[in-house]
Computed example of a mutant assay.
Amino acid sequence: MTFEPEVRERLERDAKQIIGRYPKPRSALLPLLHLVQSEEGHVSQDGIEFCAEQLGITPAQVTGVSTFYTQYKHEPVGEFHVGVCINTLCAVMGGDQIWNELTEHTGVGHDEATPDGKVSLERIECNAACDFAPVMMVNWEFFDNMTPEKAKQLVDDLRSGKEVLPSRGPNKLCSWKDASRVLAGFPDGRAHEGVQAGPESLRGLELAKQRGWQAPSADTGGAAPEEPVRPGEITDPPPNEPGKPIGGDVKPGSQEGRNQ
């Protein structure tokens, strides 16, 4: 199956705009993959061949890139693609339990979609939002401080058509295809909606303001003033002495001290 003429014409027009943003055409491969994914919901063989034609490279080269990055799907996913972070902090805060209960609740596993095509699930290694752990995402929008109960209610609401609002970001969820088009470089005009950064992310900045901390001056090379450590506060260990391995004096090639 190939793209219909009107679809191909539209894709070629968008591809030309994307490629024009880069000094070398091949640099446009990542957004082009998002573009074809926004059309079909996944990167099909037709999409791979389209990208190769537009950039003057081989389908094998496109495939090598598209299979490396997990944001590109090679099988259809749901209208709402739900990611559950199972990396270290989210896992110990409940991410593993959320994943286990959610897969049992929906009957689908990693990169699989429910029979109605509404929801698909993905195990994500990190959502880059550790201060809100455990975190989930729907079409790359954040859902913070989740629990198994909240996660199951979320997918039930998505499948039933209820309006669902992310914890931060836009005031409404877009579809998986629309999210892919935004990632291709075509903004939907909603980047400044909703909460941009939660209180947890801003605590360090607020603390610096309260204590008058400033970054060292790049011009003078001067260091920012240090505040005395209060009793009970933990300081960083002293840096390792230059020229010495972390484990102390060990023979080259020795495993001694590796786990110290």
Rank of each mutant, 00 (worst) to 15 (best):
P76R: 08
E227P: 02
V195S: 08
A91Q: 04
A128P: 01
T103W: 13
E101V: 08
N259D: 11
A113N: 11
L173I: 08
D96G: 13
E104Y: 00
G232K: 07
P31D: 11
E149Q: 10
S66K: 00
L165N: 04
G204R: 15
L89E: 13
V119D: 00
S38Y: 01
R21N: 11
T67C: 02
P238H: 07
G107P: 05
A223F: 08
D111F: 01
P252S: 02
G194L: 02
G221A: 12
V164P: 00
M136L: 12
G94Q: 03
S44H: 06
E241K: 14
A28D: 10
L30T: 09
V36F: 06
A215R: 03
R211Y: 03
V195L: 10
D156P: 02
H74R: 11
R159E: 12
P225N: 06
Q97I: 07
E104Q: 09
A179V: 07
N139G: 06
G83N: 09
Q54C: 10
N240C: 03
S160I: 01
K172V: 07
G198Q: 05
A60C: 02
F142I: 14
W99L: 12
V250E: 15
A179P: 01
M1I: 13
M136A: 06
D178E: 15
P31A: 09
I234A: 15
S160D: 06
Q210E: 15
G161P: 10
D156K: 00
E101C: 08
G257Y: 03
T106F: 01
V92M: 08
R21W: 03
K24L: 14
D131F: 03
L158P: 05
N259L: 05
V36L: 12
P231W: 02
E206Y: 15
D156G: 01
E241D: 12
V62E: 08
E206V: 15
G20L: 05
V36M: 09
F142G: 00
N87G: 12
F143L: 04
V92K: 06
E12G: 13
N171G: 12
A15I: 07
L202S: 12
I98K: 11
M136C: 05
S175G: 07
P134R: 02
P216I: 03
K150S: 15
G248D: 13
A179M: 06
K251G: 14
A133Q: 07
G20T: 15
V138S: 12
L121S: 05
S160Q: 13
A15F: 01
C130W: 07
K16D: 15
W99I: 14
G257M: 07
E79N: 09
Q196Y: 02
A151F: 03
E125L: 09
S66W: 00
N127I: 09
P5E: 10
G95M: 00
S66Q: 04
W213V: 09
F142S: 05
A28R: 12
E104L: 01
F80S: 06
N171H: 10
P170I: 12
A215D: 08
L165S: 14
K24V: 14
P25F: 05
E6H: 10
Q260P: 04
A223W: 10
C51A: 07
F68W: 09
V92G: 08
G47L: 05
S167T: 14
T235L: 04
L183N: 03
L202F: 02
M93P: 00
V229Y: 09
E241T: 15
L173A: 02
H81S: 08
Y72T: 07
R211H: 08
T2H: 14
A197F: 04
K209T: 05
G169M: 02
